[in-house]
Design a protein around this nucleic acid. Structure first.
Lengths: 146, 146
DNA sequence: TACATACCGGACAAATTTGTCCTTTAATTT
DNA sequence: AAATTAAAGGACAAATTTGTCCGGTATGTA
């Protein structure tokens, strides 16, 4: 569905959000450990998100990553996905036709449309803050433990 | 959504199906031209589908690829997708958790479930033969032309 | 000011996906 | 049987994704 980078990006954002809701800023090492992702690679992805202003960062001692209250409230899953994977998978043709549309639809065009629409809606209507509180309440997990 | 290989595989299968419904066996060159895909790469993908017995092939002069009446009737989009991309994208967790389930769900687990179910159902309930006739009737296209 | 901390950025490396080329194998035709 | 046709298969190459490493830069502290 999403790229590895995107999966890490989403999980990281949610974890940062969860900690930010508690006033805690988190470092890269902590994040990678908590979401079970490769540290250096996660750093690259966070850089992208910071540049896209979906996540905030502070350098130096006691620095790290955080979500501002505004970001917690407004940043959606969709923005994270688009920042990392681009919009192709949320718009493109399932069969890869470059100009697939009602004008010249691929044979699955009208069948895939509602599913893609739902996916877009799903990503658009869920904020990082909302998902973070779900994790905080123990209703969702960002890594598995046995 | 799907890999390039899978997109080519689906388009190729549908084109072969459309021609087979008319009793025509088609060669690789013809297929690649009609679905606008790289010839040699398409060959590899068709080999996979032939091995998985989702497409039939005949060597030698007047040989080529075809779908048997049985294949036209029974092979589903889902079988093509699984043969090429594997089942991961049709089952795995959207956030990449290896053991995501109701036991320890990712924060999006229950939101993604219905969408994934619909996607599975969509792929499961559409046969290549059905899609081929759609193309045959001009209701769907496998490549774009202006 | 010096030092320690932690993100930033670029270069590099490994793995996977995408794509090509060429030889072999099977089938048909002459 | 020989030649021709077309898929099968293996090796290789390019591109992309995934992942690592390290010096630079900003920030806080002593």
């Amino acid at each position: 569905m999403f790229s590895k980078a995107c999966e890490y990006g989403i999980r990281a954002s949610i974890y940062i959000g969860q900690q930010s809701a508690n006033g805690r800023r988190v470092g890269l090492k902590d994040i990678a450990a908590e979401i079970d992702s490769p540290e250096a690679f996660t750093a690259k992805i966070l850089q992208q998100l910071v540049r896209a202003q979906l996540v905030a960062s502070v350098k130096g001692p006691a620095g790290g990553f955080e979500l501002t209250p505004e970001q917690l409230r407004t940043v959606t899953l969709r923005q994270i996905v688009v920042a990392i994977d681009g919009g192709a998978m949320l718009q493109g043709c399932a069969l890869g036709l470059p100009q697939c549309s009602a004008k010249q639809p691929c044979p699955m065009h009208y069948q895939f449309l509602p599913i893609r629409d739902q996916l877009n809606e799903l990503l658009r209507t869920h904020t990082i803050g909302e998902l973070a509180s779900k994790v905080h309440e123990g209703l969702g997990f960002l890594k598995q433990f046995s």
